[in-house]
Design a protein around this nucleic acid. Structure first.
Lengths: 229, 229
DNA sequence: CCACTAAATGAATGCCATTCATTTAGGACG
DNA sequence: CGTCCTAAATGAATGGCATTCATTTAGTGG
Protein backbone atom coordinates (compact mmCIF):
# COMPACT_ATOMS: atom_id res chain seq x y z
CA UNK A 1 0.00 0.00 0.00
CA UNK A 2 1.47 3.35 -1.07
CA UNK A 3 1.68 6.13 1.47
CA UNK A 4 -1.35 8.37 1.17
CA UNK A 5 -0.37 11.47 -0.68
CA UNK A 6 -1.23 14.79 0.88
CA UNK A 7 -4.07 15.85 -1.34
CA UNK A 8 -5.84 18.32 0.89
CA UNK A 9 -5.58 21.36 3.09
CA UNK A 10 -3.13 22.34 5.77
CA UNK A 11 0.33 21.60 4.36
CA UNK A 12 1.75 22.10 7.84
CA UNK A 13 3.64 20.04 10.42
CA UNK A 14 1.45 17.24 11.70
CA UNK A 15 1.41 14.96 8.72
CA UNK A 16 -0.34 11.60 8.35
CA UNK A 17 -3.80 12.49 9.56
CA UNK A 18 -6.99 10.63 8.64
CA UNK A 19 -6.84 12.30 5.23
CA UNK A 20 -9.49 10.25 3.60
CA UNK A 21 -12.82 11.39 2.40
CA UNK A 22 -16.05 10.27 3.99
CA UNK A 23 -17.59 6.98 2.93
CA UNK A 24 -16.51 3.46 2.33
CA UNK A 25 -13.01 3.32 0.85
CA UNK A 26 -12.36 1.31 -2.36
CA UNK A 27 -10.58 -1.36 -0.40
CA UNK A 28 -10.83 -1.99 3.31
CA UNK A 29 -8.27 -0.16 5.41
CA UNK A 30 -8.75 -2.14 8.60
CA UNK A 31 -8.98 -5.75 9.67
CA UNK A 32 -8.47 -7.59 12.95
CA UNK A 33 -4.91 -8.64 12.14
CA UNK A 34 -3.89 -5.10 11.35
CA UNK A 35 -5.54 -3.81 14.48
CA UNK A 36 -3.74 -6.43 16.52
CA UNK A 37 -0.36 -5.62 15.04
CA UNK A 38 -0.82 -1.89 15.48
CA UNK A 39 -2.09 -2.45 19.00
CA UNK A 40 1.01 -4.39 19.94
CA UNK A 41 3.22 -1.75 18.35
CA UNK A 42 1.43 0.98 20.25
CA UNK A 43 1.73 -0.86 23.54
CA UNK A 44 5.43 -1.36 23.03
CA UNK A 45 5.93 2.32 22.30
CA UNK A 46 3.54 3.95 24.76
CA UNK A 47 2.71 1.31 27.34
CA UNK A 48 -0.76 0.42 28.49
CA UNK A 49 -1.39 3.93 29.78
CA UNK A 50 -0.86 5.36 26.35
CA UNK A 51 -2.92 2.63 24.77
CA UNK A 52 -6.19 4.36 23.91
CA UNK A 53 -8.61 3.81 21.10
CA UNK A 54 -7.83 7.29 19.85
CA UNK A 55 -4.08 6.62 19.78
CA UNK A 56 -4.62 3.29 18.07
CA UNK A 57 -6.79 4.97 15.45
CA UNK A 58 -4.16 7.63 14.89
CA UNK A 59 -1.51 4.98 14.32
CA UNK A 60 -3.75 3.29 11.79
CA UNK A 61 -4.59 6.60 10.14
CA UNK A 62 -8.23 6.18 10.76
CA UNK A 63 -11.00 7.79 12.78
CA UNK A 64 -11.54 6.18 16.20
CA UNK A 65 -15.07 5.16 15.34
CA UNK A 66 -13.82 3.12 12.39
CA UNK A 67 -12.30 0.62 14.80
CA UNK A 68 -15.74 -0.34 15.98
CA UNK A 69 -16.57 -1.83 12.62
CA UNK A 70 -14.03 -4.56 13.43
CA UNK A 71 -13.99 -4.92 17.20
CA UNK A 72 -16.77 -4.40 19.66
CA UNK A 73 -14.73 -2.82 22.43
CA UNK A 74 -11.28 -1.92 23.65
CA UNK A 75 -11.35 -5.09 25.69
CA UNK A 76 -11.62 -7.09 22.48
CA UNK A 77 -8.45 -5.44 21.19
CA UNK A 78 -6.72 -6.48 24.40
CA UNK A 79 -7.92 -10.03 23.86
CA UNK A 80 -6.52 -10.02 20.33
CA UNK A 81 -3.17 -8.77 21.60
CA UNK A 82 -3.15 -11.34 24.37
CA UNK A 83 -3.81 -14.19 22.02
CA UNK A 84 -1.14 -12.99 19.64
CA UNK A 85 1.42 -12.73 22.45
CA UNK A 86 0.67 -16.26 23.52
CA UNK A 87 2.05 -17.52 20.25
CA UNK A 88 5.44 -16.22 21.44
CA UNK A 89 5.38 -18.57 24.41
CA UNK A 90 7.76 -21.41 23.73
CA UNK A 91 6.19 -24.85 24.03
CA UNK A 92 8.69 -26.60 21.82
CA UNK A 93 10.45 -28.35 24.70
CA UNK A 94 7.42 -30.57 25.21
CA UNK A 95 8.42 -32.23 21.94
CA UNK A 96 12.10 -32.63 22.69
CA UNK A 97 12.85 -32.61 26.40
CA UNK A 98 11.87 -34.73 29.37
CA UNK A 99 8.80 -33.47 31.20
CA UNK A 100 10.62 -31.62 33.99
CA UNK A 101 12.75 -29.62 31.62
CA UNK A 102 9.85 -28.96 29.28
CA UNK A 103 7.75 -27.50 32.07
CA UNK A 104 10.70 -25.41 33.19
CA UNK A 105 11.32 -23.96 29.73
CA UNK A 106 7.64 -23.30 29.09
CA UNK A 107 7.05 -21.62 32.44
CA UNK A 108 10.02 -19.27 32.18
CA UNK A 109 9.07 -18.34 28.66
CA UNK A 110 5.43 -17.77 29.60
CA UNK A 111 6.40 -15.57 32.55
CA UNK A 112 8.86 -13.56 30.50
CA UNK A 113 6.33 -12.80 27.79
CA UNK A 114 3.63 -11.57 30.15
CA UNK A 115 5.85 -9.80 32.64
CA UNK A 116 6.01 -7.06 30.02
CA UNK A 117 2.23 -7.13 29.66
CA UNK A 118 0.83 -7.44 33.16
CA UNK A 119 -2.23 -5.32 32.39
CA UNK A 120 -3.39 -8.22 30.23
CA UNK A 121 -3.35 -10.68 33.11
CA UNK A 122 -6.77 -9.73 34.50
CA UNK A 123 -8.10 -10.22 30.98
CA UNK A 124 -6.45 -13.60 30.32
CA UNK A 125 -7.27 -15.06 33.67
CA UNK A 126 -11.00 -15.04 33.11
CA UNK A 127 -11.09 -15.36 29.32
CA UNK A 128 -12.88 -18.40 27.86
CA UNK A 129 -10.33 -20.33 25.82
CA UNK A 130 -12.70 -20.51 22.88
CA UNK A 131 -12.16 -16.76 22.38
CA UNK A 132 -8.40 -17.20 22.01
CA UNK A 133 -7.35 -19.84 19.49
CA UNK A 134 -3.60 -19.46 19.88
CA UNK A 135 -3.95 -19.74 23.63
CA UNK A 136 -5.94 -22.89 23.11
CA UNK A 137 -3.15 -24.23 20.92
CA UNK A 138 -0.69 -23.64 23.73
CA UNK A 139 -2.88 -25.58 26.14
CA UNK A 140 -3.10 -28.43 23.67
CA UNK A 141 0.69 -28.65 23.39
CA UNK A 142 1.12 -28.56 27.15
CA UNK A 143 -1.67 -31.05 27.81
CA UNK A 144 -0.16 -33.44 25.29
CA UNK A 145 3.19 -33.17 27.04
CA UNK A 146 1.61 -33.94 30.40
CA UNK A 147 -0.26 -36.93 29.03
CA UNK A 148 2.83 -38.37 27.39
CA UNK A 149 4.68 -37.92 30.67
CA UNK A 150 2.19 -40.23 32.36
CA UNK A 151 -0.04 -37.74 34.11
CA UNK A 152 -3.44 -39.04 35.14
CA UNK A 153 -5.96 -37.45 32.81
CA UNK A 154 -8.10 -35.92 35.52
CA UNK A 155 -5.22 -34.03 37.14
CA UNK A 156 -3.78 -32.43 34.04
CA UNK A 157 -5.98 -29.33 33.97
CA UNK A 158 -5.62 -28.66 37.67
CA UNK A 159 -1.85 -28.90 37.44
CA UNK A 160 -1.72 -26.55 34.47
CA UNK A 161 -4.04 -24.08 36.18
CA UNK A 162 -1.87 -24.10 39.28
CA UNK A 163 1.27 -23.51 37.25
CA UNK A 164 -0.40 -20.75 35.31
CA UNK A 165 -1.57 -19.05 38.47
CA UNK A 166 1.96 -19.07 39.79
CA UNK A 167 3.25 -17.74 36.48
CA UNK A 168 0.78 -14.86 36.36
CA UNK A 169 1.44 -13.86 39.94
CA UNK A 170 5.17 -14.02 39.32
CA UNK A 171 4.88 -11.86 36.23
CA UNK A 172 3.80 -8.98 38.46
CA UNK A 173 6.88 -9.43 40.65
CA UNK A 174 9.15 -8.73 37.75
CA UNK A 175 7.74 -5.23 37.47
CA UNK A 176 7.89 -4.41 41.18
CA UNK A 177 10.33 -1.71 42.31
CA UNK A 178 13.62 -3.02 43.69
CA UNK A 179 13.07 -1.40 47.10
CA UNK A 180 9.56 -2.75 47.53
CA UNK A 181 10.52 -4.42 50.83
CA UNK A 182 12.08 -1.39 52.50
CA UNK A 183 10.07 -1.05 55.67
CA UNK A 184 11.37 2.47 56.23
CA UNK A 185 10.54 3.94 59.61
CA UNK A 186 8.58 0.85 60.62
CA UNK A 187 11.59 -1.44 60.42
CA UNK A 188 12.07 -1.48 64.20
CA UNK A 189 8.59 -2.93 64.66
CA UNK A 190 9.22 -5.80 62.25
CA UNK A 191 12.47 -7.44 63.32
CA UNK A 192 11.94 -10.83 61.72
CA UNK A 193 10.84 -9.46 58.40
CA UNK A 194 13.52 -6.81 58.29
CA UNK A 195 16.25 -9.29 59.11
CA UNK A 196 15.06 -11.60 56.35
CA UNK A 197 15.03 -8.74 53.87
CA UNK A 198 18.51 -7.67 54.95
CA UNK A 199 19.99 -11.15 54.61
CA UNK A 200 18.45 -11.47 51.18
CA UNK A 201 20.12 -8.23 50.15
CA UNK A 202 23.47 -9.48 51.40
CA UNK A 203 23.60 -12.16 48.79
CA UNK A 204 24.85 -10.47 45.67
CA UNK A 205 22.13 -12.45 44.01
CA UNK A 206 20.65 -11.93 40.64
CA UNK A 207 17.17 -10.62 40.22
CA UNK A 208 15.07 -11.01 43.33
CA UNK A 209 12.02 -11.94 41.24
CA UNK A 210 13.96 -14.59 39.35
CA UNK A 211 15.13 -16.26 42.54
CA UNK A 212 11.60 -16.48 43.93
CA UNK A 213 10.24 -17.73 40.62
CA UNK A 214 12.89 -20.41 40.34
CA UNK A 215 12.32 -21.55 43.90
CA UNK A 216 8.55 -21.86 43.49
CA UNK A 217 8.73 -23.40 40.07
CA UNK A 218 11.10 -26.16 41.16
CA UNK A 219 8.83 -26.95 44.10
CA UNK A 220 5.82 -27.22 41.81
CA UNK A 221 7.69 -29.39 39.30
CA UNK A 222 8.90 -31.71 42.03
CA UNK A 223 5.48 -31.92 43.63
CA UNK A 224 3.61 -32.52 40.39
CA UNK A 225 6.21 -34.93 39.05
CA UNK A 226 5.24 -37.27 41.86
CA UNK A 227 1.71 -37.53 40.45
CA UNK A 228 2.90 -39.28 37.31
CA UNK A 229 2.50 -43.00 36.95
CA UNK B 1 -23.40 12.05 64.17
CA UNK B 2 -27.02 13.05 63.61
CA UNK B 3 -28.42 12.88 60.10
CA UNK B 4 -28.10 16.23 58.42
CA UNK B 5 -31.44 17.95 58.45
CA UNK B 6 -32.80 19.25 55.20
CA UNK B 7 -32.37 22.93 55.68
CA UNK B 8 -32.40 24.13 52.11
CA UNK B 9 -34.09 24.10 48.76
CA UNK B 10 -35.57 21.31 46.71
CA UNK B 11 -37.66 19.24 49.14
CA UNK B 12 -37.86 16.51 46.51
CA UNK B 13 -36.79 12.88 46.18
CA UNK B 14 -33.04 12.64 46.14
CA UNK B 15 -32.26 13.32 49.78
CA UNK B 16 -28.85 13.33 51.40
CA UNK B 17 -26.98 15.61 49.03
CA UNK B 18 -23.91 17.64 49.91
CA UNK B 19 -26.17 20.06 51.73
CA UNK B 20 -23.51 21.98 53.45
CA UNK B 21 -22.58 25.53 52.87
CA UNK B 22 -19.31 26.53 51.31
CA UNK B 23 -16.24 26.86 53.51
CA UNK B 24 -14.51 24.91 56.18
CA UNK B 25 -17.01 23.07 58.38
CA UNK B 26 -16.84 23.50 62.20
CA UNK B 27 -15.48 20.00 62.58
CA UNK B 28 -13.83 17.92 59.90
CA UNK B 29 -16.20 15.70 57.95
CA UNK B 30 -13.57 13.48 56.36
CA UNK B 31 -10.50 11.54 57.39
CA UNK B 32 -8.57 8.62 55.90
CA UNK B 33 -10.25 6.01 58.09
CA UNK B 34 -13.70 7.21 57.11
CA UNK B 35 -12.74 7.27 53.45
CA UNK B 36 -11.37 3.74 53.74
CA UNK B 37 -14.52 2.43 55.42
CA UNK B 38 -16.81 4.11 52.92
CA UNK B 39 -14.63 2.90 50.07
CA UNK B 40 -14.90 -0.69 51.21
CA UNK B 41 -18.65 -0.33 51.66
CA UNK B 42 -18.99 1.12 48.18
CA UNK B 43 -16.93 -1.65 46.64
CA UNK B 44 -19.03 -4.30 48.34
CA UNK B 45 -22.23 -2.71 47.08
CA UNK B 46 -21.22 -1.61 43.57
CA UNK B 47 -18.06 -3.50 42.73
CA UNK B 48 -14.92 -1.95 41.33
CA UNK B 49 -16.74 -0.71 38.24
CA UNK B 50 -19.08 1.35 40.37
CA UNK B 51 -16.22 2.57 42.52
CA UNK B 52 -15.68 6.14 41.36
CA UNK B 53 -14.54 9.18 43.25
CA UNK B 54 -17.93 10.76 42.58
CA UNK B 55 -19.79 7.77 44.03
CA UNK B 56 -17.49 7.69 47.03
CA UNK B 57 -18.09 11.38 47.63
CA UNK B 58 -21.84 10.89 47.37
CA UNK B 59 -21.70 8.13 49.97
CA UNK B 60 -19.77 10.42 52.28
CA UNK B 61 -22.12 13.32 51.58
CA UNK B 62 -19.35 15.46 50.30
CA UNK B 63 -18.23 17.08 47.06
CA UNK B 64 -15.79 14.96 45.05
CA UNK B 65 -13.06 17.56 45.32
CA UNK B 66 -13.18 17.38 49.12
CA UNK B 67 -11.64 13.91 48.96
CA UNK B 68 -8.45 15.37 47.58
CA UNK B 69 -7.77 17.17 50.85
CA UNK B 70 -7.16 13.72 52.36
CA UNK B 71 -5.88 11.51 49.57
CA UNK B 72 -3.85 12.44 46.55
CA UNK B 73 -5.50 10.13 44.06
CA UNK B 74 -7.98 7.33 43.54
CA UNK B 75 -5.07 4.93 43.62
CA UNK B 76 -4.33 6.01 47.18
CA UNK B 77 -7.87 5.09 48.19
CA UNK B 78 -7.31 1.67 46.67
CA UNK B 79 -4.11 1.33 48.67
CA UNK B 80 -5.98 2.21 51.87
CA UNK B 81 -8.63 -0.39 51.10
CA UNK B 82 -5.99 -2.97 50.27
CA UNK B 83 -4.15 -2.45 53.51
CA UNK B 84 -7.36 -2.61 55.50
CA UNK B 85 -8.37 -5.87 53.81
CA UNK B 86 -5.03 -7.40 54.65
CA UNK B 87 -5.89 -7.18 58.34
CA UNK B 88 -8.62 -9.72 57.61
CA UNK B 89 -6.03 -12.28 56.49
CA UNK B 90 -5.65 -14.86 59.24
CA UNK B 91 -2.06 -15.31 60.40
CA UNK B 92 -2.97 -16.70 63.81
CA UNK B 93 -1.99 -20.26 62.95
CA UNK B 94 1.67 -19.26 62.89
CA UNK B 95 1.35 -18.93 66.68
CA UNK B 96 -0.45 -22.17 67.30
CA UNK B 97 0.09 -24.72 64.56
CA UNK B 98 3.05 -26.50 63.05
CA UNK B 99 4.57 -24.72 60.08
CA UNK B 100 2.87 -26.75 57.36
CA UNK B 101 -0.59 -26.20 58.75
CA UNK B 102 0.10 -22.54 59.47
CA UNK B 103 1.12 -21.89 55.87
CA UNK B 104 -1.95 -23.76 54.67
CA UNK B 105 -4.35 -21.74 56.83
CA UNK B 106 -2.70 -18.45 55.96
CA UNK B 107 -2.62 -19.10 52.23
CA UNK B 108 -6.26 -20.14 51.97
CA UNK B 109 -7.33 -17.16 54.01
CA UNK B 110 -5.22 -14.77 51.94
CA UNK B 111 -6.60 -16.14 48.69
CA UNK B 112 -10.19 -15.98 49.91
CA UNK B 113 -9.91 -12.35 50.96
CA UNK B 114 -8.47 -11.14 47.67
CA UNK B 115 -10.46 -13.37 45.36
CA UNK B 116 -13.28 -10.91 46.02
CA UNK B 117 -10.97 -7.99 45.31
CA UNK B 118 -8.90 -8.99 42.29
CA UNK B 119 -8.75 -5.42 40.91
CA UNK B 120 -6.50 -4.64 43.87
CA UNK B 121 -3.93 -7.25 42.91
CA UNK B 122 -2.10 -5.10 40.36
CA UNK B 123 -1.90 -2.44 43.06
CA UNK B 124 -0.64 -4.71 45.84
CA UNK B 125 1.86 -6.54 43.73
CA UNK B 126 4.02 -3.50 43.15
CA UNK B 127 3.27 -1.53 46.32
CA UNK B 128 6.21 -0.72 48.61
CA UNK B 129 5.45 -2.31 51.98
CA UNK B 130 6.25 0.93 53.76
CA UNK B 131 3.04 2.36 52.30
CA UNK B 132 0.90 -0.36 53.86
CA UNK B 133 1.47 -0.87 57.59
CA UNK B 134 -1.04 -3.67 58.10
CA UNK B 135 0.42 -5.54 55.17
CA UNK B 136 3.82 -5.13 56.73
CA UNK B 137 2.45 -6.56 59.98
CA UNK B 138 1.27 -9.62 58.10
CA UNK B 139 4.72 -10.13 56.61
CA UNK B 140 6.24 -9.84 60.05
CA UNK B 141 3.97 -12.55 61.45
CA UNK B 142 4.66 -14.83 58.52
CA UNK B 143 8.42 -14.21 58.57
CA UNK B 144 8.52 -14.97 62.29
CA UNK B 145 6.72 -18.23 61.66
CA UNK B 146 9.21 -19.23 58.97
CA UNK B 147 12.17 -18.38 61.16
CA UNK B 148 10.83 -20.35 64.10
CA UNK B 149 10.26 -23.29 61.77
CA UNK B 150 13.96 -23.34 60.98
CA UNK B 151 14.02 -21.61 57.61
CA UNK B 152 17.38 -20.23 56.53
CA UNK B 153 17.15 -16.47 56.85
CA UNK B 154 18.12 -15.73 53.27
CA UNK B 155 15.39 -17.90 51.76
CA UNK B 156 12.46 -16.59 53.76
CA UNK B 157 11.57 -13.66 51.54
CA UNK B 158 11.87 -15.63 48.33
CA UNK B 159 9.64 -18.36 49.70
CA UNK B 160 7.02 -15.87 50.82
CA UNK B 161 7.13 -14.06 47.50
CA UNK B 162 6.66 -17.32 45.64
CA UNK B 163 3.70 -18.27 47.80
CA UNK B 164 2.18 -14.85 47.40
CA UNK B 165 2.55 -14.97 43.64
CA UNK B 166 0.73 -18.27 43.59
CA UNK B 167 -1.96 -16.86 45.86
CA UNK B 168 -2.56 -13.79 43.72
CA UNK B 169 -2.72 -15.78 40.51
CA UNK B 170 -5.09 -18.23 42.12
CA UNK B 171 -7.35 -15.45 43.34
CA UNK B 172 -8.16 -14.66 39.72
CA UNK B 173 -9.15 -18.26 39.07
CA UNK B 174 -11.88 -18.07 41.64
CA UNK B 175 -13.64 -15.42 39.59
CA UNK B 176 -13.31 -17.19 36.24
CA UNK B 177 -16.48 -18.45 34.56
CA UNK B 178 -17.19 -22.15 35.08
CA UNK B 179 -17.11 -22.90 31.35
CA UNK B 180 -13.82 -21.14 30.74
CA UNK B 181 -12.28 -24.32 29.29
CA UNK B 182 -15.00 -25.08 26.76
CA UNK B 183 -13.13 -25.17 23.48
CA UNK B 184 -16.36 -24.92 21.51
CA UNK B 185 -15.98 -25.52 17.80
CA UNK B 186 -12.22 -25.95 18.11
CA UNK B 187 -12.48 -29.00 20.34
CA UNK B 188 -11.68 -31.39 17.51
CA UNK B 189 -8.32 -29.73 16.95
CA UNK B 190 -7.30 -30.08 20.59
CA UNK B 191 -7.83 -33.73 21.51
CA UNK B 192 -5.47 -33.89 24.46
CA UNK B 193 -6.70 -30.73 26.06
CA UNK B 194 -10.35 -31.52 25.47
CA UNK B 195 -10.02 -35.00 26.91
CA UNK B 196 -8.34 -33.60 30.01
CA UNK B 197 -11.11 -31.04 30.44
CA UNK B 198 -13.75 -33.71 29.98
CA UNK B 199 -12.23 -36.08 32.51
CA UNK B 200 -11.99 -33.24 34.99
CA UNK B 201 -15.67 -32.56 34.55
CA UNK B 202 -16.50 -36.20 35.13
CA UNK B 203 -15.34 -36.05 38.70
CA UNK B 204 -18.24 -34.58 40.64
CA UNK B 205 -15.53 -32.52 42.30
CA UNK B 206 -15.91 -29.40 44.28
CA UNK B 207 -14.80 -26.08 42.93
CA UNK B 208 -12.37 -26.36 40.07
CA UNK B 209 -10.38 -23.41 41.37
CA UNK B 210 -10.16 -24.91 44.85
CA UNK B 211 -8.79 -28.19 43.54
CA UNK B 212 -6.04 -26.46 41.58
CA UNK B 213 -5.20 -24.20 44.49
CA UNK B 214 -4.97 -27.11 46.90
CA UNK B 215 -2.81 -29.08 44.52
CA UNK B 216 -0.34 -26.25 43.96
CA UNK B 217 -0.26 -25.18 47.57
CA UNK B 218 0.57 -28.67 48.83
CA UNK B 219 3.39 -28.93 46.31
CA UNK B 220 4.83 -25.62 47.44
CA UNK B 221 4.55 -26.53 51.11
CA UNK B 222 6.24 -29.86 50.52
CA UNK B 223 8.99 -28.33 48.43
CA UNK B 224 9.67 -25.46 50.80
CA UNK B 225 9.43 -27.66 53.88
CA UNK B 226 12.54 -29.45 52.65
CA UNK B 227 14.53 -26.21 52.93
CA UNK B 228 14.19 -26.12 56.70
CA UNK B 229 17.05 -27.19 58.90
C1' DC C 1 -29.81 -2.09 -12.27
C1' DC C 2 -31.02 -2.01 -7.74
C1' DA C 3 -31.24 -3.01 -3.00
C1' DC C 4 -28.35 -4.39 0.74
C1' DT C 5 -24.67 -4.27 3.49
C1' DA C 6 -19.86 -3.09 4.76
C1' DA C 7 -16.71 0.41 6.06
C1' DA C 8 -15.32 4.77 6.48
C1' DT C 9 -16.03 9.97 8.67
C1' DG C 10 -17.20 13.39 12.04
C1' DA C 11 -19.98 15.03 15.50
C1' DA C 12 -22.03 14.11 19.68
C1' DT C 13 -22.61 11.85 24.58
C1' DG C 14 -21.75 10.92 29.06
C1' DC C 15 -18.51 9.67 32.40
C1' DC C 16 -14.38 10.18 34.83
C1' DA C 17 -10.34 11.87 37.73
C1' DT C 18 -8.36 15.81 38.87
C1' DT C 19 -7.48 21.00 39.50
C1' DC C 20 -8.49 25.59 40.85
C1' DA C 21 -10.54 29.68 42.73
C1' DT C 22 -13.26 30.73 46.52
C1' DT C 23 -15.19 30.56 51.07
C1' DT C 24 -15.20 29.66 55.85
C1' DA C 25 -13.34 28.21 60.35
C1' DG C 26 -9.96 26.96 63.89
C1' DG C 27 -5.66 27.78 66.12
C1' DA C 28 -1.15 30.06 67.17
C1' DC C 29 0.98 34.08 68.38
C1' DG C 30 1.36 38.60 69.72
C1' DC D 1 -8.50 40.29 71.57
C1' DG D 2 -7.21 40.72 66.85
C1' DT D 3 -4.55 38.99 63.05
C1' DC D 4 -2.36 35.53 60.12
C1' DC D 5 -1.80 31.06 58.58
C1' DT D 6 -3.52 26.95 57.33
C1' DA D 7 -7.04 23.23 56.97
C1' DA D 8 -11.15 21.74 54.86
C1' DA D 9 -15.10 22.33 52.53
C1' DT D 10 -17.84 23.87 47.84
C1' DG D 11 -18.65 24.37 42.95
C1' DA D 12 -17.16 25.25 38.53
C1' DA D 13 -14.00 24.11 35.13
C1' DT D 14 -10.71 20.92 32.30
C1' DG D 15 -9.24 17.48 29.41
C1' DG D 16 -9.39 12.76 28.29
C1' DC D 17 -11.74 8.70 27.57
C1' DA D 18 -14.73 4.83 25.28
C1' DT D 19 -18.50 4.45 22.76
C1' DT D 20 -22.69 5.65 19.70
C1' DC D 21 -25.04 7.59 15.88
C1' DA D 22 -26.22 9.79 11.61
C1' DT D 23 -24.24 10.21 7.28
C1' DT D 24 -21.64 9.10 3.21
C1' DT D 25 -19.69 6.12 -0.10
C1' DA D 26 -18.61 1.73 -2.40
C1' DG D 27 -18.69 -2.97 -3.50
C1' DT D 28 -21.86 -7.24 -4.15
C1' DG D 29 -25.61 -10.59 -4.94
C1' DG D 30 -30.07 -11.22 -7.05
Amino acid sequence: MPAAKSATADPHRPDAKPRRRVGRPPSAVLDQDGITAAGLQLVRKSGYDGFTMAALARLLNVAPSALYNHVSSKREVLVLIQDHLTSFVDVSAFETEPWEQAVRDWAWSYRDVFSRHTPLIPVIAVLPVADAPKTLAMYEAVSAGFRRAGFPQERIISAIVALESFIFGSAYDVTAPADIFDSGSLAAATPNFSAAVASLGEQGYANQADVAFGLGLEALIAGFGALRR
